[in-house]
């Protein structure tokens, strides 16, 4: 069966993993009340530095780490702009995206000679003894970063909804006044949150380049950050549903890859994931975002 074979599922997971990581980041940001429109740019930055780290240190995990760390720095810069300055979060986010395209394209040019090689692969190898077993072959075929994503989602979900810092963070996102009167320093919380968010987003970028296609090109994210953002809205700000949304997009794109072989105009099939995203968003109706998302906090 064309659509239910392990290869198809693996393809959907490869496509979905970077989205899931980035969506987790966006989710945490919005839960803390920050509208993270700069997500595309931070993802792109993580994607570039991931490749850079992997090539120069000749180790894909070093690349993943570099992408994450640079993402954290980008998160900190985002926080400086949207949390500490009373700027418009929409305008700032879009400006960051454009800046990121410029920065990565410029650096890519400087390093182009070194980056023409593929980054080392980031995969598990199936032990010889298990290679013939289809099930194990599938398990080992799942990219390591997908496993990491699953672990991170469980951890994020627990922290957000079961732990004290999670409740405090969500309070900041829901009602600044209530949080303040509980003695919470809104800015510090959002800054710390944005560093974590940046880390997740940078990791998502690295998952796209180092974990999947092993190279970089200008604007390689091509709107994936925004799709992750849409997935968060689709998931009504809950990790489980959000990840499901990302996976849905991954499945949609994988269907498009295959549907092409069924004949017809490839461009029509390539629309499938986008149509799917829009349809799903339209069908889920208007969900309510954490109340403080997008509102500048000006303190007193």
């Amino acid at each position: 069966m064309m659509f239910l074979d392990p290869d198809f599922i693996l393809s959907a997971l490869r496509t979905g993993t970077p989205l899931m990581l980035v969506a987790l980041g966006v989710l945490v940001a919005e839960r803390a009340g920050v509208l993270f429109l700069g997500v595309e740019g931070v993802m792109l930055t993580g994607a570039f530095f991931g490749v850079l780290g992997a090539v120069y240190m000749d180790d894909p995990w070093a690349g993943v780490l570099t992408g994450t760390l640079v993402g954290m720095v980008a998160g900190l810069i985002t926080a400086a702009l949207v949390v500490w300055l009373p700027t418009d979060q929409v305008v700032m986010g879009l400006a960051l995206n454009i800046a990121a395209i410029g920065l990565t394209s410029f650096l890519f040019r400087l390093a182009a000679g070194d980056l023409s090689q593929m980054t080392p692969p980031l995969n598990f190898t199936v032990p010889e003894s298990l290679a013939d077993n289809a099930f194990f072959a599938f398990l080992f075929g799942v990219p390591p970063l997908t496993w990491l994503t699953l672990v991170l989602s469980v951890v994020t979900s627990y922290l957000l909804f079961r732990s004290a810092p999670g409740l405090l963070l969500r309070s900041v996102g829901q009602d600044v006044k209530a949080a303040r009167s509980a003695g919470i320093d809104i800015r510090v919380v959002r800054t710390v949150a944005m560093v974590i968010v940046g880390g997740l987003t940078g990791l998502g970028g690295a998952a796209l380049t180092v974990g999947w296609v092993r190279s970089f090109s200008d604007d390689i994210t091509a709107g994936r950050g925004f799709i992750a953002l849409a997935a968060v809205y689709f998931g009504r700000w809950y990790p489980g549903w959000t990840l499901f949304g990302c996976l849905l997009f991954g499945i949609g794109e994988s269907v498009a890859f295959r549907a092409q072989m069924l004949g017809g105009n490839p461009h029509l099939y390539l629309m499938i994931p986008y149509v799917l995203t829009v349809a799903v968003l339209a069908l889920t109706g208007r969900a309510r975002a954490p109340r403080e998302v997008g509102r500048p906090y000006e303190g007193n």
Binding site: S163, A164, L167, L168, A178, S181, A182
Partner: peptide
């Protein structure tokens, strides 16, 4: 009610 009394370091209240 509980939120203001929670500590940031309390990962398993």
């Amino acid at each position: 009610i509980v939120m203001p009394t929670l500590k940031w370091t309390d990962f398993a209240p």
